[in-house]
Design a binder for these strands. Structure first.
Lengths: 283, 283
DNA sequence: CGAGCAGACTGGTCTAGACCTCATGATGTG
DNA sequence: CACATCATGAGGTCTAGACCAGTCTGCTCG
């Protein structure tokens, strides 16, 4: 159909994009796509090639197969992954205009807790940024950020950066992943006055470590007004979800536990919450 | 026909499990697995079949392919997805013994906020469970749970269930996914006394909606002691990460945005946080 | 000694079939 | 009318090759 010879260097890509376009423009959730044998005729390809195209969309969660029935447009998926986002992005995506007041931007010696979080030695030099972040003119959050000087000597040349993540990227420390530890607390007097709190002193604290390819690149502590900030977290079902595989009939008696080839790799985030901790990963 | 020796009804499963076992017991991260052609000889299979086995482990993130070099054990993955876990599971996984004191278990009329969360009409009947949850004898959390009576009429027959998730599963309302909205707050007097709080009244609140295949099945409000409970959240890198695909040559000029077949389906969680909200999904 | 190229790998794509299981609806039959 | 059966067609698995495209090593030639 697509008369343009266009880019698709690989045949299965043309089929995949054809199907993706169908899903986007013509089909609704639950509709069936053309059968694999139809597609082989339509594109003049072998069935294995067509299946490769369908497989790609199935593993992306766009389509679901049902043996004996057909292949259907999958129900809309939810992104169950939390993303490393910046305060500015976060506010703008909610239609608010972010602003920042820098209180301090200097190089200091790492305190023990900061050194531990950043995996450096205590008293190593670290960039320190201390600022109040507002949205639509109202203070939302007090933020403290530390970055080892050794990793990015020139980080604050040219003044404190508007976006730490952009600055890190420029320094070759692009954020790869991170971890938040969220807790509630009473605001200190300083925090209460910076945030303009009255009687209600509860705040939401977030300690975040941001990792680049080489390890911990940034540590931050944020303190949010409890009355203006909440955090939305999507939760996936417990264990068995996308696991049509798994030796379900045999096994259990045969091999010496053939390894968890399911979709959950046990991991060790290397940093357990200080108190009781809950949810996410498995420290 | 199961229980027969060989153990795998499908040849590619034997290869997949063989490789999974190799990865688990003999190989280290970065090690190469046998080449696909080796495996075809070793198992007497065609290459497509071997590839199917390897594909399975690649899409699970256990292996990574590198054209021209080989297929290697992938670096340890982190689970970036938060799971719907129960309080009991959560505490036990941290080596603490959970306990529960039920304060109320009855059927009540849904208040407007509960009705909205559960997508029912105000004053519809809902099961209501009110309990204090402890770990190692210390109160950790006050929990209120609502479930529409219409969905599970017999939910509390036989007394309030020890695990709501188990009860929901038994009622055919197995949790499929959920969403938490986390915030900080001051404890009420009642909460403070139930949790045994002193001066420090900050608490971490979690509103959770749990969905089964048919929609909202349960709504809960939990109130955690701030000094004993924190939440750990893994964060994935921002946008461009696992997206080697996508029409890179053509497109952008051809069709009107050929659909996001990347790994981030834009979604609408249908329930935006009351205040500013942050992180996760994209309301 | 060093640059370069050839060959021997690796995975990536593709074919033209085959036979299997499963879901469904039409067709019979009691 | 109700239930069993069967044909049809869907996806699931599998074969025995083919050629393409990167990677790496070692040998040869300047």
């Amino acid at each position: 159909m697509d008369e343009f010879e266009h880019g698709a260097a690989h045949k299965y890509l043309t089929v995949r994009d054809h199907l993706a376009t169908l899903v986007a423009h013509e089909l609704k959730v639950g509709d069936a796509i053309p059968s694999e044998r139809d597609l082989t005729k339509q594109f003049g390809l072998s069935r294995m090639t067509v299946r490769q195209a369908v497989d790609a969309l199935v593993t992306e969660g766009v389509l679901v197969r049902e043996q004996g029935r057909g292949t259907f447009v999958a129900p809309q998926r939810i992104d169950f992954e939390m993303r490393l986002t910046t305060f500015g992005e976060e506010m703008r995506s909610r239609g608010m205009e972010p602003a920042t007041t820098v209180l301090t931007a200097q190089v200091v010696a790492a305190t023990p807790d900061v050194a531990t979080a950043l995996e450096v030695e205590p008293r190593d030099k670290v960039h320190y940024l201390y600022r109040v972040r507002s949205a639509d003119g109202t203070p939302m959050c007090i933020e403290q950020v530390w970055v080892p000087v050794a990793l990015a000597p020139a980080l604050f040349d040219g003044g404190p950066p508007a976006s730490m993540y952009a600055a890190l990227r420029d320094a070759g420390l692009a954020p790869e992943w991170g971890e938040d530890t969220l807790s509630a607390d009473e605001a200190t007097d300083t925090e209460a006055s910076l945030l303009g709190l009255g009687d209600k002193r509860a705040v939401l604290r977030a300690e975040r470590r941001t990792f680049s390819v080489d390890g911990a690149a940034m540590f931050s502590r944020a303190c949010y007004r409890a009355d203006r900030y909440s955090i939305w977290v999507p939760l996936r079902a417990p264990r068995p979800t996308l696991v049509p595989r798994r030796r379900s009939t045999q096994a259990d008696t045969t091999s010496p536990e053939p390894v968890t080839t399911g979709s959950d790799a046990t991991t060790t985030p290397a940093h357990a919450p200080a108190t009781a901790g809950a949810s996410g990963g498995r420290p």
